[in-house]
Structure formats: C-alpha cells, structure tokens
C-alpha cells in the first residue's frame, strides 16, 4: 500500500514536471497609457503598453508578439481587421534572455464605434502554445462623420447660387433690352 502511494506521489510529481515544461516562458502585460482620452470617440488615438518578459530560466528565441482586437457588442461579435486601425501590429525579438523585458507601445486610431477588447499574444520557438496578456476593454463613442446638417446647405446652396447667377444675368439682359 505504501509502495502504491509512493508510486502515485511520484507519478504526480513527474506529471507536475511535465506541466511545468508546458508553462508560459513569457509573461505578457497590457495596460492603456495614462494619456488616453477617458471617453474616446472615433478618430481619437489610443495607446496600449505591454511588457513581454522572459519568466523562464533560459533564453527564448524567435519571440513574436502581436496585437488583436475583437468587437464585443452584442450581436456584432467579430475580430477586427487592424489594417486601418494600426500600422504597428507586431514586434519580433530574436533572443530574450532570462528576466529580460521587451516594452512595446501599441498605438491605434479608433475607426469604428463600439465595444472592443484588445489583447497581446506572444509565441517563441521553444513553447508550443500561445501566451497572452490580460484583456483590456474599451468603448468607442460614435462620431457622425457625414452630417446632413453640413451637406444639405452645400448640396442645395451651390446650385441655388449658380441658378441665382443665371437669373441675374437674364434679368440684366432683359433690363438692357
């Protein structure tokens, strides 16, 4: 019985070692910078700062970290193509020594209104799974960009001015005659 218990404990210990081997070698943090607007609207810039740290006892190689954005509005849940939001979508680092940190700023321009969740993912050559930062949620207020109040006066006013010029010209010609 004692032997069986010992074997079980040893098994658990070995399993623990295996799990430790699959643990994250990189720790990734993500926070919005203090200068971000408190209630951002379309067109504003937001910046997020992440620190990617090698928390393992050995160097990691081929580190790649990238930003992902997901819209989380009810009924509109979808990943967002960052093409127009950010030109800074990923960073790479050839080697990250034990304890070494890589600090990265992720600026983005808010293109569309809605509720969003941003996350940084990182991989290295040694680890077989992706390591992620905590989520940061933010909401983008709508900003009407094509306003009828602005277009209507122009759309009606410009032709009206030209019509007025035509009428004035005809009136003057008739007056002369």
């Amino acid at each position: 019985m004692k032997k069986a218990t010992l074997a079980l404990l040893l098994g658990c210990f070995m399993l623990g070692l295996n799990l430790a081997g699959a643990a994250d070698t990189l720790s990734v943090s993500l926070v919005p910078v203090a200068s971000n607007p408190p209630s951002p609207q379309m067109g504003d810039w937001l910046k997020f700062r992440s620190v990617i740290k090698n928390s393992a006892g050995q160097p990691t190689h081929g580190v790649v970290a990238w930003i992902s954005l997901v819209q989380v509005d009810p009924g509109k849940e979808q990943p967002v193509d960052l093409e127009d939001w950010s030109a800074h979508k990923a960073v790479t680092k050839a080697v990250l020594r034990p304890g070494q940190e890589l600090s990265v700023d992720w600026p983005m321009r808010l293109i569309q209104s809605g509720s969003y969740r941003v996350v940084i993912s990182a991989v290295d050559r040694e680890t077989a799974h992706v390591m992620t930062s905590p989520f940061v949620d933010f909401r983008v207020r709508r900003k009407p960009v094509v306003e009828s109040a602005r277009i209507l006066p122009v759309a009606l006013g410009v032709p009206a001015v030209i019509l007025g010029l035509i009428a004035l010209r005809r009136y003057r010609r008739r007056d002369r005659a």
């Binding site: 379309m42 067109g43 127009d84 321009r109 808010l110 293109i111 569309q112 209104s113 709508r142 900003k143 009407p144 960009v145 094509v146 306003e147 009828s148 277009i151 209507l152 122009v154 759309a155 009606l156 410009v158 032709p159």
Partner: peptide, 17 residues
C-alpha cells in the same frame, strides 16, 4: 455633386474609414 453628396447623407453610421 449635390446628388452624390445627398446620397451620402442617408448613411450616418459611416465609420472614419
């Protein structure tokens, strides 16, 4: 140009892009 602009008024949910 007015007609083109007025057609755009109908969509007030346009994103910045």
């Amino acid at each position: 140009m007015s007609v083109l602009s007025l057609l755009l008024v109908s969509n007030t949910e346009l994103s910045l892009l």
